[in-house]
Simulated assay, not measured.
Amino acid sequence: MQYSGLEDFLQNGRSALAKGPIALIFCEDEVEIATTLRHHLDCGFATVVALMPAAFDLAEDVAAKVQRVDHEALGAAATTAAINAIIPAAAGQWLFYCYNTEYLFFPFCEHRTIGEMLTFHSEERRDAMLTYVVDLYAGDLGQAPNAVNLDQAFMDKSGYYALARKDPETGHPRERQLDFFGGLRWRFEEHIPQARRNIDRISLFRARAGLQLNDDHRFNDQEYNTYSCPWHHNLTTALCSFRTAKALKRNPGSTYDIETFRWHNSVPFEWHSRQLLDLGLMEPGQWF
Rank of each mutant, 00 (worst) to 15 (best):
V133G: 04
G285A: 14
R112N: 12
T236F: 07
D221E: 14
N225P: 12
T101A: 08
T35H: 08
A147W: 03
Q2W: 04
V66Q: 00
A34E: 04
N225Y: 06
E270V: 07
D61M: 10
A162L: 11
Y227I: 09
L204G: 06
L277M: 10
P284V: 14
D61P: 01
N149D: 11
L74E: 13
D167H: 07
A128E: 05
G280I: 13
A144T: 11
D61K: 13
C109W: 01
R197F: 05
G44F: 05
F154M: 15
G5I: 01
R165S: 11
F105L: 11
W287A: 06
V148E: 02
A195W: 10
L141H: 12
E175N: 08
L51D: 02
A59Q: 02
T131G: 08
M282P: 00
G183H: 13
F56H: 03
I25E: 12
S241H: 04
D179Y: 05
A81Q: 10
H121L: 13
D151Q: 13
P88F: 04
H40S: 02
F205V: 15
A162W: 12
F180Y: 07
N214L: 04
E123C: 05
R185F: 06
A63I: 12
R250A: 15
F269R: 03
G182E: 09
G159M: 14
T35V: 06
L281E: 01
S228V: 10
L276S: 03
G159A: 12
A82W: 06
G210L: 01
G142K: 05
D140N: 15
L58K: 09
Y97W: 12
Q152L: 00
N149F: 00
A91S: 07
E60A: 13
A85W: 04
P168D: 00
H111V: 14
R250F: 13
T237L: 10
T79P: 05
N225L: 01
E7D: 13
W231L: 14
T260M: 11
T236H: 07
L17K: 01
L184N: 06
D257T: 15
E123T: 07
D135K: 03
V66F: 02
T244H: 05
W186T: 03
H111M: 09
I33A: 00
L150K: 06
S266Q: 05
Y224N: 00
I192V: 03
P173L: 08
A78H: 06
H121G: 09
V148F: 11
G115C: 10
R38Y: 07
G171A: 02
C27Y: 10
H217V: 14
G75V: 09
D8P: 01
A59C: 04
Q212F: 06
T47V: 01
V267L: 11
V267Q: 14
F180G: 02
